[in-house]
């Protein structure tokens, strides 16, 4: 006999305590259900239900076996579910919410190429959220922005993204093919909520002559589209917006993979991430940044 299927009938009848209702739930007629419960009782060598007068009740043995039967049915269900989806080998990874959808898709595909049996489940989280999620095990690995302070995390090689500026199309600076940070003086700045990156970026902006009139946190480009703020980021083709490189490439945003305990699977994810970010997101190996030159004019004490 199919013991698991019979146990499933037992569980349903035990929940309904009514053969008619249980048969409806199971999508079968009542007589075969009654027969199968009897066969199960014969198989187990004990009576499971007390069918007195108008009531159906669990026997003491039935009550005892119900928990186990439920457990077996649930585990078999889970087994089938796992077999179907390849679960059991899921790698949960955090990715920055402002990473382009195409890059995320590419990353998932690149990882699957090397690990067809593992499912990569990306979760959109900012760096600070990823640090917490890595700590409590909600994610296995992450893609974080630097600088970052988090004890106990391991990091892959840092990749550098050189962001340009996103402006409203009608911004006078859009006339030029490139924009200097100092040209942005007086404008509002929209930045993603990445604390370390934000502090580093603002310091560089100040050094180069751009002190934002106001800082906005977020990734929605509505403010930029409205001409109320500018934003930094990868080259983007957005109707109504102009992307321009920053003269002298003053900003270098660093990204790396991160983990709490490195496993071979995480190492493969890190390798796929490096490959994808270099190939699709225009990032490059962290090199020695060119020394910043300051021209002699207008001169010292002149």
């Amino acid at each position: 006999m199919d013991l698991v299927r019979h146990l499933r009938y037992f569980v349903v009848v035990a929940e309904e305590l009514h053969f008619g209702n249980a048969a409806i739930r199971l999508g079968m007629a009542q007589p075969p259900l009654s027969q199968r419960i009897k066969r199960l009782e014969t198989e187990l060598g004990t009576r499971l239900f007390d069918r007195s007068a108008r009531q159906v009740r669990l026997t003491e043995a039935g009550r005892l076996l119900l928990g186990e039967a439920r457990e077996i049915v649930a585990r078999v269900d889970r087994l089938k579910e796992l077999a179907r989806t390849g679960e059991g080998t899921v790698l949960k990874v955090g990715v920055p919410p402002d990473l382009a959808a195409a890059v995320i898709a590419e990353l998932v595909a690149a990882f699957r190429e090397d690990n067809p049996e593992v499912r990569l489940a990306p979760v959109e989280l900012w760096t600070a959220e990823q640090v917490a999620a890595l700590a409590d095990g909600t994610i296995d690995a992450g893609l974080v922005r630097h600088p970052i302070t988090a004890a106990g995390l391991g990091f892959g090689p840092a990749l550098v993204q050189v962001p340009g500026v996103l402006l409203a199309e009608q911004d006078p600076l859009a006339r030029f093919r490139e924009v200097h940070l100092a040209d942005l003086a007086g404008r509002d700045l929209l930045m993603p909520p990445e604390d370390g990156l934000l502090a580093e970026t603002l310091a560089e902006c100040r050094r180069r002559g751009f002190v934002p009139a106001q800082l906005h946190h977020g990734v929605g480009l509505g403010l930029v589209l409205a001409g109320a703020a500018v934003s930094f980021g990868a080259p983007a083709q957005v109707p109504g917006l102009a992307w321009r490189p920053l003269l002298g490439s003053p900003l270098a945003w660093r990204v790396s993979t991160a983990w709490r305990a490195e496993t071979p699977m995480i190492a493969q994810f890190a390798a796929a991430a490096v490959r994808t970010l270099k190939g699709r997101a225009g990032m490059s190996d962290e090199g020695s940044a060119p020394a910043r030159r300051v021209s002699g004019r207008p001169g010292f004490l002149s």
Binding site: R208, G248, P250, R293, V294, S295, R297, P298, G299
Partner: peptide, 18 residues
Amino acid sequence: QVWPHRLASGFPYDDVGV
């Protein structure tokens, strides 16, 4: 050269030499 008002005024950046 000391004069900042002509050519150099088009490039008001510390890292651009004129």
